[in-house]
Nucleic acid binder design. Sequence first.
DNA 1: TCAAGATTGATGCAGGTGCATCGAGTGGAG
DNA 2: CTCCACTCGATGCACCTGCATCAATCTTGA
Lengths: 165, 165
Amino acid sequence: MKRKPSTEATSAWIRLMRVQSRVLDCVEQDLKKAGFPPLAWYDALLELSRAPSGELRPVELERQMLIPQYSTSRLIDRLVDEGLASRRECKIDKRGQFVEITEAGRELQKRMWGAYSAAIEKYVGSKLSDADAVKLSGLLDRLGCSCGEMKLPPVVHSNETTPSR
Amino acid sequence: MKRKPSTEATSAWIRLMRVQSRVLDCVEQDLKKAGFPPLAWYDALLELSRAPSGELRPVELERQMLIPQYSTSRLIDRLVDEGLASRRECKIDKRGQFVEITEAGRELQKRMWGAYSAAIEKYVGSKLSDADAVKLSGLLDRLGCSCGEMKLPPVVHSNETTPSR
DNA sequence: TCAAGATTGATGCAGGTGCATCGAGTGGAG
DNA sequence: CTCCACTCGATGCACCTGCATCAATCTTGA
């Protein structure tokens, strides 16, 4: 029940923690320096923009983004405050609501993708061959689906407006 | 200057973000459920306990842990408040100080390692063969040393009281 | 020797996050 | 229908973080 991890596993753990925090940091810095809001905003805007009519229930967004409920709630507050999204009431379930992306929201999302994709290329793409990127993805996936029970989207496809962290 | 990342790279980026946050979350949860403080405390205590006489300058700690100065300062505050470390003045440089781990600190560090190592095994070790763990480490290392310019410790060695995230 | 600049560590402030809890609304069992 | 359990989303609180800045001290170099 309390087997010790091998030094190899421990080492992988340490690197996973350190490397992602460094890389994330770098990417967030680049975005910030370009005058953009945090990555989480991008993720939310992307999810909304991909949704059928540009709108989602907060609960959906929450599940997509893997963040807690209150976090979603407040993120939406901020998007709405900035005019990037708007809340619409939900007729069929009066507890709920819809969050709809605005034109400004769509536009920001696209502009952010420019800086974001450049950062990904700079800090990840340029460091790894495609084949190695695939290997890395594969190894990471083995760790992913287990502590909780989520499935990651199998692979990313679109060409111009992609990720969602 | 603004080449787009390949979908492979983007996919690796997404997984790196998602998987590490899931796994870290799981580990932190396990520690918390076992009644322990956050991982950052462990990291600090470990660094201190490894230092020559159980004491370090805050600046050293900061560099080891890769966290900002103010963050170190406040982390030390908390450790001191809990009696896990104490501040000693530094004779030779009166701006500075030394932080020394206490017996309680050493003891907590050891007890935490029990739960921590079990979590690493549960969420990482058991998911990956040692060979795969090594591959993963290797791939991650390629991303690591670049955005800033830090070197990660080459590989972890000790057997009973290891990581430092 | 002395002023300018760098380094060390602390802190006020604004904002973000986790936790617990709340009120509104839904839906199912009896 | 009525109640009870549940889901949805918001929010008060405590704490944590990043940023900017501070005072104290050390170092440099003219």
